[in-house]
């Protein structure tokens, strides 16, 4: 089967520092793929190379056989790659419902047809369904900027799923979130994975969360791939233990 996302020999250097050094991996459709590593291991740089925020110095990135190396964020989102950011990123001046509609509206029609489209552009039902799924329905009419941190985090995630993306890249979804909400996020992601077949790539610090969520995990250290395997394999890998505990 063709991988949904593949990276081949991706490198990014800052002067003499090899932030990402010859990293290759593939993600199969329907998989939940985790990327972990100590601070400064190059996770975020790799993420940014894949998502077009920065251009890699070498290597190729492909999405469903299409070369996306160096493609910008707009092109990637149009292809159907959803993402969340490390920090909160919602539209604070719009209502919660408008936030999720805004997240999907640009996939409907053309720029000009949207000018004359109905305000909800046929996304009303889908918005309500998504908000219900993320337990945000009671807040639909509120301004997103007025929500609590946890609610904004959920909204942020809900927005990434509104356009039915084939692949969603999550940058530290559990950061700064209380344990109850972490558990809820994990269950939600697994449910979306099961029911819609959405593929995930997750960068995360929280080990328990990654181990419980992901089917396969890649460990980065000093910009290089240290190990790839199932959570059980990673947990018992001596090199990984050393990278985390020895350093």
């Amino acid at each position: 089967m063709t991988p949904i996302l593949s990276a081949a020999n991706v490198s990014k250097h800052y002067g003499a520092i090899r932030a990402v050094d010859d990293v290759s991996f593939t993600v199969a459709p329907g998989e939940i793929f985790g990327v972990i590593g100590p601070n400064g291991s190059g996770k975020t740089t790799l993420f940014n190379c894949v998502l077009g925020q920065i251009r890699p110095d070498g290597g190729r990135v492909a999405f469903q056989d299409r070369d996306i190396t160096g493609a910008g964020p707009l092109a990637l989102s149009r292809l159907g790659i959803g993402r969340t950011f490390q920090s909160l990123q919602v539209f604070g001046g719009l209502t919660v419902r408008d936030n999720v509609i805004a997240a999907a509206q640009e996939h409907r029609g053309t720029l000009w047809s949207r000018l004359f489209a109905a305000p909800e552009i046929g996304l009303g039902a889908k918005a309500d369904e998504t908000l219900a799924l993320f337990e945000l329905a009671p807040h639909a009419g509120k301004l997103a900027g007025g929500l609590s941190y946890g609610q904004q985090k959920l909204l942020d995630m809900a927005m990434a799923f509104m356009a039915d993306p084939a692949l969603v890249m999550l940058d530290e979804p559990a950061a700064g979130v209380n344990p109850r909400l972490i558990e809820m996020i994990r269950q939600l992601l697994q449910r979306l994975n099961r029911e819609r077949g959405t593929t995930f790539v997750v960068i995360e610090h929280n080990m328990d969360f990654v181990m419980a969520l992901c089917q396969r995990i890649m460990v980065l250290a000093e910009g290089r791939v240290l190990a790839v395997g199932t959570p059980a394999e990673i947990r018992s890998n001596p090199a990984v233990l050393e990278a985390y505990l020895g350093a």
């Binding site: 998502l51 707009l74 719009l94």
Partner: peptide, 11 residues
């Protein structure tokens, strides 16, 4: 409100 986020949502 957030041009960077907007772009990641195909806006």
């Amino acid at each position: 409100d957030n041009p960077v986020r907007a772009e990641s949502l195909a806006i």
